Deep mutational scan, measured.
Amino acid sequence: QKPVSAYALFFRDTQAAIKGQNPNATFGEVSKIVASMWDSLGEEQKQVYKRKTEAAKKEYLKALAAYR
């Protein structure tokens, strides 16, 4: 399975908490809140997710090379 983006990892980590705080929110509303949070996130915090994405990408490429 291809690795997901840094934003997708952040979304996955954040979505449940947002939904818990806003139980009646639609998926679209939750998405807007998470997107706003991502935009206001500091670069250092974004780097945490970007590093996770890079590590997953390297593992994916290694597994793909081994498969071929």
Rank of each mutant, 00 (worst) to 15 (best):
A55I: 08
K32Y: 02
A35D: 06
G20Q: 15
P23V: 01
K2M: 05
E43W: 04
R12N: 15
F10A: 00
S36R: 09
L9M: 11
Q15F: 12
T53R: 09
G42Q: 08
L61P: 13
E54T: 06
S5G: 10
E29P: 01
S5W: 03
A66Y: 09
I33G: 04
Y67N: 15
R68S: 06
E54C: 06
A56C: 09
I33V: 08
T53I: 09
Y7Q: 07
S31N: 07
K46L: 02
S5L: 00
S40T: 14
Q47S: 10
G20N: 10
K2A: 06
L61K: 15
K52C: 02
V30P: 01
P23S: 05
Q21P: 01
E44W: 03
Q15H: 10
P3T: 08
A6M: 05
Y60W: 06
I33L: 12
F27C: 07
Q1R: 10
P23E: 02
P3L: 08
R12I: 06
Q45F: 04
A66V: 13
L41C: 02
Q47G: 09
V4L: 13
I18T: 01
Q45G: 08
K46M: 04
Q1C: 04
K46W: 00
Y49F: 15
S5H: 01
L61Q: 14
Q45H: 14
A6C: 04
K2R: 06
S40W: 01
A35C: 06
K19G: 02
A56T: 11
Q21N: 13
A55R: 10
G42I: 00
A35L: 05
V34A: 12
S40Y: 05
E43P: 13
K52Y: 05
Q47K: 11
K52P: 05
L61E: 10
P23D: 00
E54H: 05
T26N: 13
K2G: 04
A63Y: 08
G28M: 07
L64A: 10
Q15I: 13
Q45R: 10
P23M: 01
L9G: 05
D39G: 07
A66P: 15
A66K: 06
D39T: 05
T14A: 05
E43I: 04
Q47L: 07
G20V: 13
D39E: 12
G28N: 14
E54M: 08
G28E: 15
K2Q: 04
A63M: 07
V30W: 05
A25D: 01
L61N: 10
A63W: 07
Q21D: 09
W38T: 00
